[in-house]
C-alpha cells in the first residue's frame, strides 16, 4: 500500500461523496458529473487493488490482517458499481444522494484499509 496514494484516494472519495450529496440535496438527478465522480472512485480502487497485490513483492508488507484488508477492498469495489447501477435505473434526486453515501462509505473503508496496512498488529 502506497501511503500518499491512499491519502489522495481518500480525499477523492470524500470529495465525490460531498459533491453527490450536495447535487442530490439541490434536486439534481444523477448526471455525468455525479456518475463520473463515482467512476473515478472505482478506478482508484482498482489501482489500489493492483498496488496491494504487487506491494509485498517489493518488501511493502501489511502489518495487520491480510484477510481483513481484502474483505474491505472487495466490499469497497462493489459499492460504486451498485450505486451507479441504481442511479441509471431510477433517475431521481435521491439516487444522487445514494451515490454520495456510497462514495463516503468507500472513504471510511479506505481509511480502515490504511489502518490495517500500517498500524494494526496481526
Amino acid at each position: 500500500m502506497i501511503e500518499w496514494f491512499t491519502w489522495v484516494q481518500l480525499a477523492v472519495a470524500v470529495a465525490a461523496g460531498l459533491l453527490c450529496l450536495i447535487l442530490g440535496l439541490a434536486g439534481r438527478v444523477p448526471g455525468d458529473l455525479a456518475n463520473g465522480s463515482l467512476a473515478l472512485v472505482e478506478l482508484l480502487l482498482v489501482v489500489q487493488l493492483v498496488v496491494a497485490i504487487a506491494a509485498p513483492a517489493f518488501g511493502n508488507e501489511p502489518t495487520g490482517s491480510v484477510l481483513e484488508f481484502y474483505t474491505y477492498l472487495v466490499g469497497a469495489l462493489l459499492l460504486p458499481p451498485a450505486a451507479v447501477f441504481w442511479a441509471l435505473l431510477e433517475r431521481s434526486r435521491w439516487s444522487t444522494v445514494v451515490l454520495g453515501v456510497a462514495a463516503l462509505a468507500v472513504a471510511v473503508m479506505v481509511y480502515r484499509m490504511l489502518q490495517i496496512w500500517t498500524v494494526q498488529q496481526a
Binding site: 490482517s65 484477510l67 481483513e68 474483505t71 474491505y72 466490499g75 462493489l78 459499492l79 451498485a82 450505486a83 441504481w86 431510477e90 431521481s92 435521491w94 439516487s95 444522494v97 445514494v98 453515501v101 456510497a102 462509505a105
Partner: peptide
C-alpha cells in the same frame, strides 16, 4: 420511493459491513 431509497442504501452498506466483519471473524 423518495428519501426512503437513501435509508435502503445505508442499510445495504451496513449489511455489507456486518457480513464482511463477520466473515473475517469466523474465518480467522
Amino acid at each position: 420511493r423518495g428519501i426512503g431509497r437513501v435509508l435502503v442504501a445505508v442499510y445495504g452498506v451496513l449489511a455489507l459491513a456486518a457480513v464482511g466483519r463477520s466473515f473475517v471473524q469466523i474465518a480467522s
